[in-house]
Simulated assay, not measured.
Amino acid sequence: MVYSLLKYLILGPWLRLIFWPKVEGREYVPATGPAILASNHLSFSDSIFMPLMVKRRVTFVAKQEYFTGRGLKGWLTKMFFVGTGTIPVDRSGGRAAQAAIDTGLRVLREGHIFGIYPEGTRSPDGRLYRGKTGVARLALESGAPVIPVVMLNSDVVQPPGKLLPKIKRVRIRFGPPMDFSRYRGMAGDRFIERAVTDEIMYELMELSGREYVDVYAQKVKSGQAKSGRSNPAEPSEPSQSSSAVAA
Rank of each mutant, 00 (worst) to 15 (best):
P145W: 09
W14I: 14
F60A: 02
Q224E: 14
G228Y: 13
E193C: 09
L164M: 14
Y28D: 07
R182K: 14
Y183K: 10
V157P: 05
V2L: 15
G161M: 09
G12K: 09
K55I: 04
V146E: 15
I36T: 13
Y28V: 05
V58A: 04
N153V: 08
P176M: 03
S154T: 15
P13N: 09
V150W: 09
F180T: 01
F19M: 05
R184M: 05
G83N: 09
Y117V: 00
M186C: 13
R173M: 12
L72R: 15
P160F: 08
G111Y: 05
S47E: 03
L52I: 11
V23H: 13
S47Q: 02
Y202K: 13
V23S: 06
L128K: 06
P30T: 07
N153Y: 04
Q240W: 12
R127E: 10
T68K: 15
A144F: 13
R184G: 10
T103M: 04
S243V: 01
G209T: 07
G223Q: 14
S142P: 04
G228M: 13
E193D: 11
R137Y: 12
S154I: 03
R106C: 01
F49V: 12
R56I: 11
A97P: 06
L52K: 03
G134E: 01
F80G: 05
S47W: 03
R137I: 03
A187Q: 14
S92T: 15
R130W: 09
L105M: 12
Q224I: 11
G161L: 10
F67T: 05
S208A: 07
P34T: 05
P165D: 07
P118V: 00
T84Y: 02
G126H: 10
T197Y: 08
E203Y: 06
P21N: 07
L152G: 02
G188L: 12
W20D: 11
Y66E: 02
R173A: 10
L108Y: 02
P176D: 09
R95G: 07
G104H: 04
L163K: 08
K168D: 08
L5W: 12
L164S: 11
K73N: 13
G12E: 06
T84D: 01
M178T: 09
A195F: 07
S123E: 06
M79H: 08
V220G: 07
V215K: 14
Q64F: 06
G25E: 15
T197P: 14
E199H: 07
H41C: 04
W75S: 09
I200M: 03
F60M: 02
G131L: 02
A247T: 12
A247W: 12
S208D: 07
E211C: 08
L128Y: 06
I18P: 03
D155M: 01
I147K: 06
P159R: 03
I167N: 10
L164C: 13
Y212W: 10
P30H: 05
R169D: 10
L11V: 12
M151V: 01
R91I: 08
E65Q: 10
V135L: 09
G71V: 04
H41W: 02
R173D: 12
P145A: 06
R91D: 08
A38L: 04
E203K: 10
Y216C: 02
A38V: 02
M50D: 04
V29P: 15
H41M: 00
M151C: 06
E27R: 11
V245W: 14
D102I: 01
Y28S: 08
K162C: 07
A97K: 06
L15T: 04
Q98W: 05
